[in-house]
Design a protein around this nucleic acid. Structure first.
Lengths: 351, 351
DNA sequence: CTGAAAGCGCTTACAG
DNA sequence: CTGAAAGCGCTTACAG
């Protein structure tokens, strides 16, 4: 039903080749001819068929984004960054979310083949079968791919990550600097790469400072898990058990966990930071509005999205030969720096 | 470079027609033949070309989402709802954000033509040129379109909206019921349809109850605007001017505005809800974590996304004839109900 | 500067 | 049950 290039050619009284040249901005067309064609196209409301075009050009002008089942601000900021960068290159963005497991992500990757010129993959989970890169297997070869906050031991693919390790270290160093030695670490999901890195940073920083090992509690990046942890912490703080060291600060693996911890501590009648300090990770918007405002690690989410997208575009433009030729170890992940935001939840007690 | 249907046919020793039948699950293929083809396809890592396929089927199996430059949770929840619904129909989702103005949205709409089977349009702004529906003009005809929280006086397109009017009324009735008569309304962006509806609901509910008109302050849905409004309110509360009625409650057009109002009031030494009550709109996650927790109107964002998407899919499946035949007035918007969440920011003073 | 023609990778009547 | 062939709407050498 919609007009085709043939219709335009007929109305303009030229060949389809000429119409194509005009539409693609070639210079070797007489001004008068060009005008006729443009007039005919407008008159017919002509829109070129993307399918026909990409069949022959072998480009879809679209990039895909494979995302986990993210919650909240983090997700939207990331998409905004990706969309912004894609748009600046004249590309469209095809998103596919809710890929908790590496296998799901790999399946979605397969479904995108042929619809996109390249794919951004974010899949921080490491399941029994390994990371998403393992699940992808040979699929990724041929289709330009860039990883975002995704573990890849093989380093076969370009990768952008946030400095989870450095951020966790910075937080611990800050807590130590304020005189808190006895820490509680509330972790993230067991198989989540980011959670693992944050934990590692915490342990390393404590060890480097000669501070005692933290008391570790389990979590899963949710507020509910934080509340459960907070209740246990409150219990221990109140039970005056001289044998056990009194926790002086809580480092939650992400802000939502910290939100839960704070709620539980407050409900138990404890004061932050006077009775115990609290730090988070991510700097979600809620962080500054908590009482007390939450000390946390700001993560450059939009930048993460734009940087990965620009890298993907470059890879696409370098052509397919580059794809095949990436042996294991070919890429070193680009690490985006994070920033410690010092707020009241870790302030020194006035006394 | 990637394998084509011809390669599969050659390896399997059959014709491309047979390969096509197998791949599309037709039943009229001998089991043995089917096996050969499947084996060949797997062996070659064959993935059908979406472009070639959609060129002939005239379907892209993709729907587009045109979104404004949204911030935060709202955006991600909406996308999650859309993606979820699209996936359930086996469709992909192409997103395009950052369309503040109706004209930008219309341009993006044009860029999507030919790449999608239908479009979800969210563009609450009404600029000089009218709403996005006006800017779309005849573009929408032919391409199935469903509006989301987007004004459309002509009612030429199916539309899903949140009950902004009813939500605003409910909030005002609640404030009146707690004995607060003198309200301040902090508005949203001047040309935003949702903001306009919320204001209208506020005014109507006050008028219906015989309450005085509110003191109106300008805003733009941002925290900064809320802070500015909050400072003016604090000023008036402190200047004991017997002529002017003392404001008893603030109704902010959205939660982020309320966040700013609260910050300014608190900074001025005023207590919420004791000195003045405060209500918002949206129920962003921050709302429950404020001190005091914010009374607000919960908006069913995920549902909005899924409902609109299902409607779009149905429209796509009904075929193109339906599109052309929609005269002005053909559609009544579907209004999704909202819910008043009663929290401490509007509680009655203990006394 | 312009046109006729081949071809991109599929699907789908039409025969057999 | 299977194949040969046309055709979807474009782009792009190749002539002229």
């Amino acid at each position: 039903m919609p007009a085709t290039i043939k219709d335009v050619a007929r109305v303009a009284g030229v060949s389809v080749a000429t119409v194509s040249r005009v539409l693609n901005g070639f210079s070797n067309v007489l001004p008068a001819t060009r005008r006729h064609v443009e007039e005919a196209a407008r008159q017919l409301g002509f829109a070129p068929s993307a399918a026909a075009r990409s069949l022959i050009t072998r480009r879809t002008d679209t990039i895909g984004a494979l995302l986990p089942d993210l919650h909240g601000e983090y997700f939207s900021e990331l998409i905004r960054g990706m969309d912004q960068a894609a748009r600046s290159h004249g590309l469209h963005l095809l998103v596919s979310s809710a890929h908790g497991h590496a296998q799901q992500a790999a399946a979605a990757f397969g479904a995108m083949r042929g619809r996109v010129d390249g794919v951004l993959v974010m899949s921080p989970q490491v399941s029994e079968g390994g990371s998403v890169v393992d699940a992808l297997g040979s699929m990724a070869c041929g289709l330009p791919t860039v990883l975002v906050n995704t573990p890849d031991a093989s380093r076969r693919l370009p990768s952008f990550v946030v400095d989870n390790l450095g951020g966790a270290r910075a937080m611990v160093e800050h807590l130590l600097a304020t005189g808190r030695q006895h820490l509680v670490f509330v972790g993230g999901p067991r198989h989540n790469h980011e959670a693992t890195e944050r934990r590692r940073g915490c342990l390393e920083a404590l060890a480097a400072a000669g501070a005692p090992k933290p008391w570790e509690l389990e979590g899963d990046f949710t507020e509910a898990a934080g509340q459960a942890a907070g209740r246990r912490i409150a219990e221990r703080l109140r039970a005056a058990r001289p044998k056990l060291p009194r926790p002086q600060a809580v480092f939650a693996a992400n802000d939502m966990t910290a939100v839960g911890v704070l709620a539980a501590l407050t409900a138990a009648g404890l004061r932050v930071p006077e009775d115990i300090a609290l730090g988070g990770f991510d700097d979600v918007p809620i962080a500054r509005y908590l009482s007390p405002a939450l000390t946390t690690i700001r993560v450059p989410i939009v930048e993460l999205g734009t940087a990965a997208t620009h890298a993907l575009v470059q890879r696409i433009e370098n052509g397919p030969q580059q794809e095949a030729a990436s042996p294991p170890g070919a890429f070193t992940p680009s690490v985006l720096p994070v920033e410690l935001l010092h707020r009241r939840s870790t302030a020194l007690p006035a006394g």
